[in-house]
Amino acid sequence: MAGVKRNRLKTSSLHASKIVDNIHFAFLALPAAALLFVFAYIPMSGIVIAFKHFRVTEGVFGSPWVGFKNFEFFFKSADAWRTIRNTLGMNFLLIVSSLICNIAFALLCYYLRSRRAIKTYQTITIIPSFLSWVVVGYLVYALLKPSGGIINQIITFFGGTPVKWYSEPYKWPALLVIINLWRGVGYGSLFYFASLMGIEHDYFEVAALEGANRWHELRYIILPHLLPLIIIMQILAIGNIFRADFGLFFNVTRDAGPLYPTTDVIDTYIYRALMKLGDIGMSSAAGLFQSVVGFVLILATNLIVKRIDADYALF
């Protein structure tokens, strides 16, 4: 009797403490959850704006519905196709070039024998990633300014004709790749370097005994070791391939009109439609299109990875 009673007491107090625990959890998670609700979930419901003729005087709910008219305007405008192409194309270039250079520089540091040298290079090369795109824009301007910029001075020194950088759109895909690498490799390679440091040295010793050369090491030890990290980073990157780095495309190019054929991306388009033209309909249509395609892309990528090897999937 007594034993049973005690047992019941215990379970009920356990039950009570579980409730208390969960109240604590709720309390702990509340601020972050509430902030997300206000600044992520409520704006999600705002996507209805894309289907409305938004008028400031009538607000989100008072404005009349117009169906897909805003999308029609967006897709009919000459810029829609160009911005989509630029976004996907440039992001693809940026992702691939970063991946290759990040790993290459991580390997370079890994193979260096002097600890001091590694530290020095890493400390210096990471500096650009501490800069905002605004400041990078200033630096790039000092280099590329058509009259008086350093690059054109070098070109004229060697007898070439100076280039009008800010009105030559077809030079910018390469320039943006270089600028993006300049800013990002020092930092981006750290992830891979950290991962490389985790390789057990025994592997190399065994491999050396088997007569493996550097190439074999790379192919059979190092790359397989880096693979999970590469895949996770690429899923994230591909999921965001429809979202361009606004600062890079807007500020580093100085929003120069003549460069739009290659540098106008969805994000700069939305900014222009919203802030310069005040055209809320068109900008929200473009924005919703971007969000939906981005969502589908990240789900699709993850699904494909899951099919190939479930361990590598993000979720």
């Binding site: 992520a40 999600m44 704006i49 939305i270 929200s284 924005g287």
Partner: peptide, 24 residues
């Protein structure tokens, strides 16, 4: 709760609704 947090990484309303919500 995990899903609630994670979903915001997958989908967003975009800048326009946020802008109108925050300003108006």
């Amino acid at each position: 709760l995990s899903f609630y947090f994670f979903f915001t990484m997958l989908f967003s309303g975009g800048i326009v609704p946020s802008y109108i919500w925050i300003t108006q």
